[in-house]
Amino acid sequence: MIKILLFAQLQEEIGQKHIEIEVKEITVQQLKEMLKVKFKFANLDNVMVAINEEYAMDQDVIQSGDTVAFIPPVSGG
């Protein structure tokens, strides 16, 4: 099981702060594709991804038990 934390507009888009996915192993890129299909996210490019509080890249592998955060940059100031 992978725990996924959502922030900012991603939370709004699906009305949930976190979701859980039953997979053993998946790359960041694959997870993005899966979420786009399953939850109809408009856009997951330019969203920063962290696995267990460490910056992750598209080809990185997520293992069951990991916590993944999707963090869209906020722009205001």
Binding site: A8, Q9, N43, D45, N46, M48, Y55, P72, P73, V74, S75, G76, G77
Partner: peptide
């Protein structure tokens, strides 16, 4: 390095608002 390209349409203070403590924390 962190963002390969310009994020398009991030949430802004003028579209979703803001409270002052968020400013202070940053």
């Amino acid at each position: 390095c962190l963002l390969d390209s310009l994020p398009v349409s991030g949430a802004t203070c003028d579209s979703v608002g803001i409270v002052s403590p968020a400013v202070q924390m940053v």
